[in-house]
Structures are given as C-alpha cells and as structure tokens.
C-alpha cells in the first residue's frame, strides 16, 4: 500500500475546479515529482492534499482517509508542506519559526533535539537564530522553510516549487539538501518543480500534469528523456 494514494482528485477555488481527476501515489521513502506548465494545477493539487482548499475525491494517507480531514489533522498524521513562495513567518525569529513548525507536537525534549539537528544541518540558520526570518536571504529562507516543515516530523514532505526565486547555485544546493533528507531519513517527498532537469535528477518517479489532468506515472529517467516533457515545460 502506498503512503499517499490519491484517486480522482477534484479541487479548485470557488465555483471552478482547476484540478479534475488527478490520480497519484507516493510510496515510503520515494521522491516523486509533479511536472507541468504554469496553470496546470500543480499548486492546486498540493494545496488540496494539505486541506488548504476544498476538494473531493479519494485521498488516503497511510491508509487513513484524509479527504475530509482538517489541515491540522493532516499535519498530525505526518504530512508536511513547504508552501509555494515564502514558507517562513517573517516576523518570527529563525528559532521561533522552527518551534512554530513543531506546532502539533508537545514533546519539548524532542523539539529541542530537532532544533539542534536542523541547526547542525544548516549552520547559517544557527548563526541567525535570533534574527527575524524576513531578514534572511532567499536561500536561507528556503532552508528555513524546509527545516520548519521537517520540524513536525513528517513521513511525507510536500515541496511546492522550492527553487522559486533562487539562484541556480542555491537551487542546486537546495535539491542536494532535499536528496540528502530523502536518503538519510528515508523521507518520502512529493515535489512540484519548474526546473525539470534538477527535479528529475533526484526523483524516482514523476507525473506530468496538463490542464488539471495527470498522466500515468513514469520513471524519472524516462521522463527526462522525453522531448514532449521539455516542450510542456518551456511552453512551446
């Protein structure tokens, strides 16, 4: 059984569905990438999974039906998201952001340990622990957003375009970082990304989403070699 199993997902804002009939699965320890052009429904799918927007269809996380669950219940079940754009709280300090990421947890000892762990992983964050997150550079903010999401000790991490607004060098570092989280913690990751080459470089499988529909799952290598994929991306 897959960790995340979605069948016939419909979601959108208000009257119009943007996503109509998405099926996808993510297994334990797997990196799955969701590719597609602007407006194809990638972010909508991610928001629907986390319960940020109204959705219907079959959504199961580790066997539990989450199609009617509230966002905080979904986080408690072990599904964390790095939302698109700024995933940090600008007015909280770096450390407070990490603590806020552990909002659903009550184990003080474990939270303190995890904060140390993420400060060790990203020493730049440790140096700035008392600074407001809004004062960090774009790259540091994204590191903080990922650590913040990991603070809830998820079993599946959703990342919505983590490379948005980052320099190519920082984007590479960020992907290396995600890959490391996947390998060393056996963390399952569902990734939405515009940068297909890099994303497929760390992914096991991928889906192509087009105007609210998703095709069959294909291996990352297969997708990377597909000219049509590049076309879908670049939009010509």
């Amino acid at each position: 059984m897959s960790l995340l199993q979605i069948e016939d997902l419909h979601a959108g804002y208000g009257a119009a569905d943007i996503v109509h009939g998405v099926d996808l699965t993510v297994d334990e320890g797997e990196v799955v990438v969701l590719l597609g052009a602007n407006g194809a429904g990638k972010t909508t799918t991610m928001r629907a999974i986390s319960g940020l927007i109204a959705r219907h269809g079959s959504l199961r996380f580790d066997g539990t039906d989450i199609s009617r669950a509230a966002p905080d219940e979904i986080v408690r079940l072990g599904l964390a998201q790095v939302p698109q754009g700024r995933g940090t709280i600008a007015d909280l300090t770096v450390e407070e952001n990490l603590r806020a990421g552990a909002h659903v947890r009550r184990d003080k000892q474990g939270i303190a340990e995890d904060i140390t762990r993420w400060f060790d992983t990203y020493p730049r964050l440790a140096e700035r622990r008392k600074q407001q997150a809004g004062l960090l550079s774009g790259g540091e903010q994204q590191m903080l957003a990922i650590s913040r999401a990991m603070m809830s000790r998820p079993r599946l991490l959703l990342c919505d375009e983590p490379s948005l607004g980052l320099s190519p060098k920082l984007t590479q570092e960020m992907f290396a970082s995600l890959s490391r989280i996947n390998h060393e913690m056996r963390m399952a990751i569902l990734l939405v990304e515009q940068n297909a080459t890099l994303a497929l470089g760390i992914a096991d499988r991928g889906y192509l989403i087009e105007v609210g529909h998703v095709g069959a799952s294909r291996s990352a290598a297969d997708l990377a070699g597909d000219d049509a994929i590049r076309a879908a991306y670049l939009g010509y």
Binding site: D72, V75, R86, R148
Partner: peptide
C-alpha cells in the same frame, strides 16, 4: 503567512 501557518497545523 496564513497558508504557511495552516500547513504547520
């Protein structure tokens, strides 16, 4: 950052 707060639980 309301969406981020909500996905934090």
């Amino acid at each position: 950052n309301e969406p981020a707060a909500i996905v934090m639980g």
